[in-house]
């Protein structure tokens, strides 16, 4: 329980009145002193009563991107039978920006609020300590209770507009990323539907026979592929590293939305070519928790396929060896 600025002044005034009462023995000053003390006592008692019997429930709506807007459902349950709780402020744990305020929660009821929040960092975020605070009924004291909320949420790297960062990627002038023309009408095969496929290409007859969605594939539909090599070798500058992670996520999002098959190569972790939203989240899952590694242990061949974007930590990185096979090299420090 904390004393506010007003509370401190009120307390000093009460102490002075107590001295006056003791000095004079005047019952009317004792009466005023009793009023002051009763306000102080009630401040504490009502505040305690106001905070008792509250239960906090938190549900984070997915997906969550670092420094991006996200919505969190916060429910406060007042388990008290008769006493209404007023002015309940919910403060987020460290790492989440945002707070919410419940003006009134009647007894034996709950209130739900969808709160806009911002997660400051990517990674696996353990909810931890939420803080419920109130200064009801007066402005003299405030009290808070810690609410340990179990559970975790994966926070993806921040997705940014890449146009401003590397304009040549999306300007339509950079040859490797230009759309290819092919013989799009030449039937090649019927295969199983994959996430990201055009629904119009579903071959309904075969689908009916196999009881699975089957799509027609044409020879000219050779997938446009992009390989992103992300240098997460140590040592690295933390700030640049985070920018590089965010950039990788951003270009993955960008090219996947344009229909590219994107592959991500990092130390120890590889996401093979794939397309569509599902694939984007596979990549984001890796990037959300990516950390620096001491050696390059890429489990698949270093051979590149399609255009390659190499994102390097620094000039001296040992992944310099990929520069010759890369179509574009981006240094984290320039991001």
């Amino acid at each position: 329980m904390k004393l506010s600025r007003e509370g401190k002044r009120f307390l000093i005034a009460t102490a002075l009145i107590a001295v006056a009462a003791l000095n004079t023995g005047n019952n009317l000053i004792y009466l005023i002193l009793s009023m002051m003390l009763s306000i102080l006592v009630l401040s504490i008692l009502i505040l305690r009563g106001n905070m008792n019997g509250l239960e906090l429930r938190v549900y984070q709506l997915q997906p969550v991107f670092a420094n991006g807007p996200a919505n969190m459902n916060i429910t406060i349950l007042n388990k008290k039978r008769l006493i209404t709780s007023y002015s309940i402020k919910v403060l987020m744990p460290e790492g989440i920006k945002g707070e919410t305020f419940f003006p009134k929660i009647s007894g034996l009821s709950d209130k739900l609020k969808t709160v806009p929040v911002v997660y400051e960092k990517r990674g696996i975020f353990k909810y931890g300590d939420f803080f419920i605070e109130s200064s009801f009924p007066f402005i003299l004291f405030s009290a808070g209770i810690l609410c340990r909320v179990k559970g975790e949420v994966i926070v993806y790297p921040e997705i940014k507009e890449t146009d401003e960062i590397v304009p040549e990627i999306t300007s339509g002038r950079y040859e490797p990323f230009l759309p290819r023309t092919g013989r799009g009408d030449e039937f090649s095969m019927i295969r199983e539907f994959r996430y990201g496929d055009d629904w119009r290409r579903i071959h309904w007859k075969t689908s009916a026979k196999t009881a699975k969605f089957m799509v027609m594939e044409y020879a000219g539909e050779e997938p446009r592929k992009l390989t992103i090599i992300f240098d997460n070798l140590r040592p690295h500058d933390t700030e640049s590293f985070e920018k590089a992670v965010s950039f990788s996520a951003s270009i993955s999002d960008r090219f996947l939305s344009e229909g590219f098959f994107v592959r991500l190569l990092t130390c120890r972790k590889v996401i093979p070519f794939g397309s569509g939203k599902e694939h984007l989240f596979k990549i984001l899952d890796v990037l959300a928790v990516i950390e620096g590694q001491d050696s390059w242990e890429c489990p698949i061949s270093d051979e590149t396929e399609g255009p390659t974007i190499l994102i390097l930590n620094s000039d001296g990185s040992s992944l310099n060896k990929f520069i010759p096979v890369s179509d574009m090299v981006i240094y984290a420090s320039t991001l």
Binding site: A21, L22, N23, T24, G25, N27, Y30, L31, L33, S34, M35, L37, S38, I39, V41, L42, I46
Partner: peptide, 20 residues
Amino acid sequence: LTLLITIALFVSTPRISGGV
């Protein structure tokens, strides 16, 4: 409540007249 507690405190506060 304030009135009630005021009365209770008024009745129970020890009466001392310092007169210092």
